[in-house]
């Protein structure tokens, strides 16, 4: 019984660290991508202002695509937080 509780606590603790890493690294990558894309957009808009309407549609879509990795990582993190499959080993 005591061992089970100990294992449960260990799994929850390590899962907590994993959730932090999943969200943190996902956000880190998305931030770098968005930073590079936004700087390129500003660069392009400064050089050729007539291209701004074309670029803004693409920027909006690419923002969504870059954020996709972060959104997926948030989903995975929530899966580990609310329906942790690793706890099934204990039960």
């Amino acid at each position: 019984m005591e061992n089970t509780v100990q294992y449960l606590a260990m799994i929850q603790a390590y899962t907590g660290i994993a959730i932090g890493l999943i969200i943190g690294l996902g956000a880190f990558g998305a931030c770098i991508g968005i930073g590079i894309m936004c700087s390129s957009f500003l660069d392009g808009a400064a050089r050729q202002p007539e291209l701004i309407p074309t670029l803004q549609g693409k920027v909006f879509l690419l923002l969504g695509l870059i954020d996709a990795s972060f959104i997926i990582s948030v989903g995975l993190a929530m899966m580990f937080a609310f329906a942790n499959p690793l706890l099934a080993v204990i039960k």
Partner: peptide
């Protein structure tokens, strides 16, 4: 069913690039 939810979420999020 968490894996199905994540599958739908990932597929839909990645498909947003099709607009490009």
């Amino acid at each position: 069913v968490p894996l199905s939810l994540i599958g739908g979420l990932a597929g839909s999020a990645l498909a947003s690039g099709a607009g490009l």
